[in-house]
């Protein structure tokens, strides 16, 4: 399988506040990659470092098997982006964007762009500042798709969208990914979106990748072991990754649901959602040694 993004030893350092990395990632083309993590974990920093909006301190990034620093303009022809908070100046209208983008992207497809505007019920001649938050997001998505990119890099593309539009947008992403050469890197807080569409989940915490797994594998194998407070001490510490003490019971994150079910027959082992996983890893105790 071709690699869409290869990141080697990427470090982005903010003196005295935050360090991202070292990040090593290989993203295959044809997949939807979900980037999760709490606010300030480094999702946006990672995305902006990949795009060259932030200047990395160290490391190498290859996109479509080409070195990004040396082929930046060429590579970006094939990338569509939605950034959190950053877009065209608000006094332009959607129709202006068509005129501008036509001269920026070689493959800009005006017909497709206006088709999306139509599909999303977006007005052509209204200034961006008069659009609602959801409409603005949809406009950003239309602009990201209209030059037939091979890679979509999306920072919180579904935030601010109501459930109906969100499912429309996810539907579009699924259609996009039907082409095997296409790839999506997608960061979000709304982890349920990823449960529907992501192939791989990358979990970032405090600037480090702490989990990088296939979604099915993750949801099939990981689970939550629940037990009463008095039984907690009887559980082997090697069997769980983190634990969280609640009022009446303990919840433990386990990485091999089937094995744990056999071993602790009298206890409950629940399926896990990405949200549970995030909370247990971030809020739980003993969160070292996750593989």
């Amino acid at each position: 399988m071709n690699k869409a993004i290869e990141i080697k030893d990427l470090v982005k350092n903010y003196p005295e506040s935050f360090t991202l990395g070292e990040i090593n990632l290989n993203i295959s083309s044809g997949e939807i990659i979900g980037l999760i993590g709490e606010n300030g974990a480094g999702k946006t920093t990672l995305i902006k470092s990949i795009l060259g909006i932030l200047l990395k301190n160290k490391g190498e990034i290859k996109i479509f098997n080409k070195n990004l620093d040396k082929n930046e303009v060429l590579i970006k022809e094939d990338i569509g982006v939605v950034l959190d908070n950053s877009f065209f100046p608000e006094i332009l209208c959607p129709k202006d964007l068509d005129k501008i983008m036509k001269s920026i992207y070689q493959n800009w497809d005006s017909l497709l762009y206006f088709k999306y505007l139509n599909e999303f019920n977006l007005p052509c001649n209204t200034m961006i500042k008069k659009l609602s938050k959801g409409m603005k997001k949809k406009l950003e998505i239309a602009a990201a798709l209209a030059h037939h990119p091979k890679l979509l890099i999306l920072d919180e593309p579904t935030s601010g969208l109501d459930p109906v539009v969100r499912s429309e947008v996810l539907e579009i992403f699924l259609k996009f990914i039907a082409d095997e050469e296409h790839t999506i890197l997608f960061s979000t807080h709304i982890t349920s979106d990823l449960e529907h569409i992501a192939d791989e989940i990358i979990f970032i915490n405090k600037g480090k990748v702490i989990l990088n797994k296939n979604r099915d594998e993750l949801l099939d194998n990981y689970g939550i072991l629940k037990c009463d407070i008095d039984k907690f001490s009887s559980i082997d510490k090697n069997d769980y990754i983190t634990y969280k003490k609640n009022k009446y019971d303990y919840e433990m994150l386990v990485s091999d649901k089937a094995k744990i079910k056999k071993k602790y027959k009298d206890m409950i082992v629940d399926n896990i959602t990405l949200e549970d996983l995030m909370v247990l890893i971030i809020k739980g105790d003993k969160n070292e040694g996750i593989n």
Binding site: K48, L51, G52, I53, E72, V73, L74, I75, K76, E77, I79, V81, L83, N85, S86, F87, F88, P89, E90, I91, I104, Y105, Q106, I153
Partner: peptide, 21 residues
């Protein structure tokens, strides 16, 4: 004012992500 709007809407980040140096 084009600089002001660019700054206000964080345009430059978006511009850099496009195929322009």
């Amino acid at each position: 004012t084009t600089f002001s709007y660019d700054e206000y809407n964080l345009w430059d980040a978006y511009a850099i992500s496009m195929p322009v140096s």
